[in-house]
Design a protein around this nucleic acid. Structure first.
Lengths: 333, 333
DNA sequence: TTGAAAGCGCTAACAA
DNA sequence: TTGTTAGCGCTTTCAA
């Protein structure tokens, strides 16, 4: 069974190629009657225009690539909903590329090379510890891009981010005002939110109160609960703080569980607050106070912004800052 | 800056198009010296072959589409790791399509139409309540496919699944043997594992013990914790069972929390066992006994099987059954 | 071992 | 409003 092409449609409808091309692309110059005739034949023959051929002819693939390291997947997954929906509505295909941060080969470079070969129209990147390298490559190949989680922009690059520094500042400032300065910050290596920005915000809050936040107050941990929990269980055997601020719910829950298992009462003995507001925070006991990010929207916004860049549409700002809101639950007073 | 093409390489290397094509495709007939010369030019010019053009010429896109409803995302996400890695290693691109089960339009049909237009070589489907329709369309369009979570196969279709009936049978049988027959089954609407198979296994176990499992012992719930937990909280106010079997950890945790909040002691008053073995089961208190599925592998296997179908490779079986293992934790005795 | 040339299926000037 | 035709960048016979 041969695939039917625009030729078949043209022949069957008794018109030229160009006319068929016009109707499938919704050109307005074609006479209504001709259009109906062609449409009928398309329907009868169940003709599906070949995107590949169109891509070759137009140098556009209507494809957006998203690139992320496996370890960031927990964050990316929730965005895929927004990305997928926006892609579907705007008629873009979404191709995913995972960079394997375990292997030692140059996956970032390899992946971007692949993106170039497939001629994706644009790419969505996520903040991670290789983001600078990714941005550099994207610039080199002149691929339009939107990065989620960091604030960058130029001719071909836009971003969707949250003001992490500000968020951290507010949280910490509010505790310092209450006289609580025995605070530790727990963070995994990979995060959607820039850890450094968070730390900068924390430090600024301390500075504001004539105190200093030392690097000893930072606990580096794994984003795998299996590793994170035992580490914290050991930690809380001999430590105890007024407040723990975690940059992701999973670690937040690990803190709650590890502390509870060491008989530290939450929130009475210690308060825990984290970020992302995933379902982990609802499932934990006590439930976890968490800073909500509009994850789904960030994905959808990224696609929208990228398509604007691709189509040279009017753009208000290429650096879109989204708002956060703190979801107060049982782990804080 | 114009994109450089195979023509540029040919000219620069003083050979013909065909020769360049041969070297980038690793043809063995080209003389080593010529090959090196061409390779050098490719390097110098930083030439990246255009996949789109190649796709048009060969009618192959080396692209696999994966299609899933948003509501199944919790399950699919963990597989994306395996799918992404396998895709990268086998040099296939992965394009994702989400079917929006909220909207009332024919998204399944629309999405498959899109897949046809983009000429994906094959597609990976996931068991869900529209799977029959999806399979029908895939057959109609003659697209090679692998479905994850259900056992089906034919000329162009393969599958990766677990024997859900058997799994459920074993669990329930073991409890019935201990004389525990006050069991309820909790299940969300969408699931990667066929709920009906699970129920069939449960019923078979009951039958084996000359008892019957009634439909009143099934609790239908939402896959959203926010909805599931309140429903169960209410339920356990007036109910109490020996065993709760849940088809997904999220609901398993909801059961634990809802029961605990009604002062039902787990596992002493009631045992809870669930499926998937996600990190939810580790984070819950008490920790949740759960049936482990090799999720990552299932994704990778699906890609591998699909590529075998695509390339007419030798295939042992098109219905690949993967093993499960029960991860005993605190919620069962 | 290499090259010439005919597609792959579509778009987009340009003409009519 | 419609048709003709030259590409888009690559693969793949067929000849040499």
């Amino acid at each position: 069974m041969k695939k039917i092409t625009i030729y078949d449609v043209a022949r069957e409808a008794g018109v030229s190629l160009a006319t068929v091309s016009r109707v499938i692309n919704g050109s307005s110059v074609v006479r209504e009657k001709t259009k109906q005739k062609v449409l009928k034949v398309i329907e009868d023959l169940d003709f599906k225009p070949n995107q590949i051929a169109r891509g070759l002819a137009t140098s556009k693939t209507t494809t957006i690539a998203i690139i992320f390291p496996q370890s960031l997947f927990a964050h990316v997954k929730d965005m895929i909903g927004g990305i997928g929906d926006a892609g579907r509505h705007l008629d873009y295909n979404i191709t995913i590329y995972t960079t394997d941060d375990i292997g030692d080969d140059d996956t970032v470079g390899d992946v971007l090379e692949k993106v170039v070969k497939t001629r994706a129209d644009g790419v969505i990147l996520f903040n991670n510890d290789q983001i600078d390298q990714e941005i550099e490559l994207v610039r080199k190949y002149k691929i339009p891009a939107v990065v989620i989680g960091a604030c960058v922009s130029d001719e071909l690059i836009g971003s969707i981010y949250i003001d992490a520094k500000q968020v951290a500042f507010q949280i910490i400032d509010s505790y310092l005002k209450k006289g609580k300065s025995d605070i530790v910050f727990v963070s995994p290596k990979q995060n959607l939110v820039r850890t450094n920005d968070l730390i900068a915000g924390i430090k600024e809050a301390y500075a504001q109160h004539q105190q200093t936040f030392s690097d000893e107050q930072i606990i580096h941990t794994s984003s795998h609960y299996e590793k994170c929990y035992p580490q914290l269980l050991e930690y809380f055997r001999s430590h105890h703080h007024e407040v723990v601020f975690s940059s992701y719910d999973k670690e937040g829950v690990a803190v709650i569980n590890a502390a509870s298992d060491n008989n530290i009462k939450i929130p009475d003995d210690m308060e825990v607050i984290s970020m992302m507001d995933t379902s982990y925070s609802l499932m934990s006991r006590p439930t976890l106070t968490s800073i909500h990010l509009p994850i789904y929207d960030m994905g959808a916004l990224a696609v929208r912004l990228l398509t604007k860049i691709l189509n040279d549409e009017e753009i208000e700002t290429k650096e879109v800052c989204v708002n956060t809101i703190i979801m107060k639950r049982e782990s804080t007073k």
